[in-house]
Computed example of a mutant assay.
Amino acid sequence: MSNAYLDLLAYFGIGGAHPGGFNLTQSILEDESIQSNESVLEIGCGTGQTAAFLAEQFNCQVTAIDKHPIMIEKARERFKNNEIPVKVMEGDAQSLDFADDSFDFIIAESVIVFTDISKTLHELSRVLKSDGSMIIIEMTAEKSLPEELQKKACSLYGIKKIINEEEWIVHLQQAGFTRIELLNTPSELIQSEINDINQSENINENLYVLWDEHNYFIHRNYHYIGFRAFRCHLA
């Protein structure tokens, strides 16, 4: 099923569109000790900004997947132009085409909320090695959302529900993650600076309207909706 907000990100080719932006990604990954012989998976890789950083920073084996064909095209363009050895492929986070225990490290930045959360987390648990780790950054309800606001968010972003921190932790536990660390990050879902864009030609005017709606929604409802970053382990 098509998602207009994800189409927006794809056609505008926005890197670091997730909460906190690429600066947050870099600050979080600075604390990771990924080895060059380790395998890394990024789901919902978008245009490949984080995957490229992982490959360059740690010289590790990076696999990047996304469900949107335009995102895949732009990620491949990035990796080719910069000669970065990232394996990029189209794939569904809810049904990963990888064997059990395939990856040492997994990262997902504002991806899981756009899927069936339980299905995706169980898949990530399945393909993560028992001694591996996973980092997720996800939109989170700061307090109980009025029904109309929840409906508006679901309509705007094409999601089922914005859940709170405790609900994220329950979902993670149910998927098999036993050690869940809440990373110390700003929680506000503010518009981060965008300086990585690979814009398509002939963008539908409706996507410009949607971008304005998104910015207005975030600005108006920042006290209801934020984000959390978790580091998760299976054992």
Rank of each mutant, 00 (worst) to 15 (best):
F98P: 02
I34K: 13
Y11A: 10
G16K: 12
K80W: 03
Q26D: 08
E166A: 07
E166D: 12
A141P: 02
A175G: 10
F230Q: 04
Q174L: 12
N37G: 08
G132V: 07
Q49S: 05
V113A: 13
E188W: 14
L96N: 11
E188G: 09
R76V: 02
E167C: 09
S36T: 13
L24G: 04
N37A: 08
T47W: 10
Y11W: 08
F12T: 08
S95N: 15
E123W: 00
A153H: 03
V127H: 03
F105T: 06
D196K: 15
K143H: 05
R179N: 05
F79T: 02
F227H: 11
A55T: 08
E165S: 08
S125G: 15
T140I: 04
S133Y: 05
Q173R: 02
R76D: 09
S118F: 14
K119P: 02
G176M: 04
Q191Y: 15
Q199P: 04
H18V: 07
C154M: 08
N37F: 11
I135N: 05
H171S: 13
E30F: 02
D97Q: 09
I135C: 03
E167P: 03
N184W: 00
A99W: 13
V209A: 14
S118G: 01
N23L: 11
F79L: 05
N184G: 09
I190S: 08
Q173K: 01
